[in-house]
Design a protein around this nucleic acid. Structure first.
Length: 281
DNA sequence: GAGAGTGTTGTAAC
DNA sequence: GGTTACAACACTCT
């Protein structure tokens, strides 16, 4: 999946769903999906769940951490007596019996509830990281777009040295963490900036406008529980609703929310990119 | 059936 | 160091 708002949504649900539970058994169904020792998790209690960029961090009472990256198609689904809590990519798995053919790791808790890690394309991972090396995992990440300490002046500084298209610059985790394709496109539309513009061609007031727009669309995404595009179906109401209010992403030919001109699709840096030729300059 | 496309990101090459 | 192309994988869509 996922973009930051959907990861944030999952973390919030997991915080109430798994904190305090003791891990009884870990089954790795696909070796590539799990790094480290699954046995190190058994008998450990989850103290809290946090997020950094798009990485989910389970804090354990052993001072180890379980990190999860869902990449393109990962899902975390918690199943207990009262139903399911989770979310992820629209693979259809969500309504199937679990484990499914895409289930890669299964965590069983001592109260009988189960956390499934599904990942169709096997790009995502789970890994056990000792507290002493945790900082290394986040070493190359710029501050999150949701970080209150992040300021427009940071953008102005890092954009000044880059000639890459502005869309690629804001999707670069060394510039700012947590901005993916959907929200990059929508923020550029809201800020009325052409995604092709070299990052170092933006005037300071444009950078400020883009900064505010990114904050706005990410916040909207979180408020609406993330974006679930295409065929995502959920049993428990966790399905994101951002797709209903998205501005340009996958809205080729439909009217631009700023000026009503048709949204066009181009390819930029190998990624599908949606924008308005009329008002994004 | 072939080929392109998919919300991510690490790596290698220039 | 910045930029670009591509690979990892398994689908769905045209």
């Amino acid at each position: 999946m996922p973009e930051l708002p959907e990861v944030e949504t999952i973390v919030r649900r997991l915080s109430t769903g798994v904190v305090g539970k003791k891990i009884a058994k870990v089954s790795v169904l696909r070796e590539k999906s799990f790094r480290g020792s699954p046995v190190a998790l058994e008998g450990r209690t989850i103290l809290s769940v946090a997020r950094r960029s798009k990485i989910i961090q389970f804090n354990l009472n052993s001072l180890d951490h379980l990190l999860v990256h869902l990449k393109m198609t990962g899902q975390l689904i918690l199943e207990n007596e009262s139903g399911r809590v989770g979310g992820g990519h629209p693979t259809g798995d969500f309504t199937n019996n679990l484990p499914s053919s895409h289930t890669r790791v299964v965590l069983v808790f001592d109260d009988g509830s189960t956390l499934y890690f599904n990942d169709m394309r096997v790009f995502g991972w789970m890994k056990v990281v000792p507290h002493s090396t945790l900082a290394n995992e986040y070493h190359d990440l710029a501050p999150d777009i949701t970080d209150p300490q992040l300021t427009p002046s940071h953008f102005i500084k890092v954009f000044a040295t880059r000639s890459t298209p502005i869309k690629q610059a804001v999707m670069n985790n060394a510039v700012v963490a947590g901005v993916g394709n959907i929200y990059a496109a929508d923020a550029l539309n809201l800020a009325k900036i052409d995604p092709h513009r070299p990052a170092n061609s933006l005037q300071p007031q444009e950078v400020k406008r883009l900064f505010d727009s990114l904050k706005t669309v990410i916040e909207l995404g979180i408020v609406h529980g993330g974006a679930s595009i295409d065929t995502f179906v959920s049993l428990d109401g966790l399905t994101g609703r951002y797709q209903d209010i998205r501005r340009v992403y996958k809205r080729e030919g439909l009217p631009c929310p700023n000026c009503q001109a048709p949204v066009v699709k181009v390819k930029l840096g190998g990624r599908g990119t949606f924008f308005c030729r009329e008002c994004q300059v």
